[in-house]
Design a protein around this nucleic acid. Sequence first.
RNA 1: GGGCCGUUAGCUCAGUCGGUAGAGCACCGGACUUUUAAUCCGAUGGUCGGGCGUUCGAAUCGCCCACGGCCCA
Length: 500
Amino acid sequence: MAEEETIQDEQEQIKQRREKLSTLREEGIAFPTDFRRDVVAGELHAEYGEKAAEDLEATPVRVKVAGRMMTRRVMGKASFCHIQDMSGKIQLYVTRDVLPEGYYNQQFKKWDIGDILGAEGILFKTKTGELSVKVDNIRLLTKALRPLPEKFHGLADQETKYRQRYLDLIMNDVTRETFLVRTRIISFIREFLTHSGFLEVETPMMQAIPGGATARPFETHHNALDMGLYLRIAPELYLKRLVVGGFENVFEINRNFRNEGLSTRHNPEFTMLEFYQAYADYHDLMNLTEDMLRQLAKQVLGKTKITYQGEEYDFDKPFTRMSVKESILHYNPELKPEDIDNIDSACKVAEGLKIPLKDSYGLGKIQIEIFEKTVEHRLMDPTFITAYPVEVSPLARRNDDDPFVTDRFEFFVGGREIANGFSELNDAEDQAERFRKQVEEKDAGDMEAMHFDADYITALEHGMPPTAGEGIGIDRLVMLFTDAPSIRDVLLFPHMRPKA
RNA sequence: GGGCCGUUAGCUCAGUCGGUAGAGCACCGGACUUUUAAUCCGAUGGUCGGGCGUUCGAAUCGCCCACGGCCCA
């Protein structure tokens, strides 16, 4: 059966390449490991790209390069090819007469596009001025058995780009650049927070009680302990335990898991930055966020006007700040404050907007439904929305002047939520009461409602200093900065259904 | 979950009214010592996503399924 599949799988080109490999095996070591390069393509272009042909001739530079052969143009006794390494491409000029007798025809010409080569030679410029290596020693380091996608159109099929990301990375510069930017963003944030006095930590990915967010968790099982465990939906409660423990400023950049549907904005596992700062409040975090994102744009993209899907967002001008209620009234000018101030009129507004309501919804939840329906997608330039109702903020500190809302904000760009932060609820008794409310909702059938985490309450009872905390969705931030329409474009290996 | 679109050679794509499947690139053979989508000559390559049905005959029409994309909930 397996044999049958193999035969089916064997395309003509793969067969030919297997035969070439078989010959290589007979001739010696088919997969050598002893070649060492001394430079990568990007360094060569940076250092010698601007040099005149005469200068390169006057002081010969000898280099060893390696990479995947991406193109080849054979013209009788001479050939050009490009090899690609992590930093870019460099052209090789290979001629028959400087190689050992028979090597050019019997070896080099039998290699295929996609094979991985090591080459040694002198830098020079071609007639058209392209920096190239005049090769006098070249070896096949790895035989590729499968052909690459077509050189001109590259790899366009979305599904293959996601399922075989390595092909996408080989063929598409834009894809490579996207993931380089992703890494630069994460590096910048790590350095920014570290330099601001935050300590990077790691907290459990497997939790007995999944806390810190309202979402359905993945469940797993620990065999030796014979107990159920959950993949975390957020690190929040553990990070705040660390604040109780005296690690006053901490951050973690790591994966969260949520057992929900997939979309252009949702992947079951996604990367989150969470950070906590003691002796600070949510205003301090809004300021920090604004500062960090502005610097991030400058440093990573070299500009503060970001183009996303044809729209431009300015990170240079001060970010807008308004409350949930203000934003609802601002984007629904026909509404008066009293229309959303009590549950009966708010229900009418929601019904007018065709928002399905549940009996369990209080005024706060209804306001948020109205906000999500009429405001969220219109928050284009960077905007902080503040004063979220207590009802939808079970871990946030109650506002001193208006106990209906919390000292909380969310941050939006391009109509999408990027961050969520608040002054932390460090009143253990209030927190216990909020957990009880959540458990009631869970018992009433809300699969996303929180568990009661007694251990966390105990931690709070030991005293957590006044603290503000925030989470930033790294994937959505990367989407924004790389102009990616789907979260799958910024995840190296996005979740896919099994193919067959 | 619903709607729309897509799935044809290794890759990128055509395929008319239902009548035995096409191109470019890649690959194979040949020519060629500054090419860069190299060029020129010649040849090979197909489970048309899967299944069922309609039909003398299906890549094409119908139904079901799978996977993907976009939009909506």
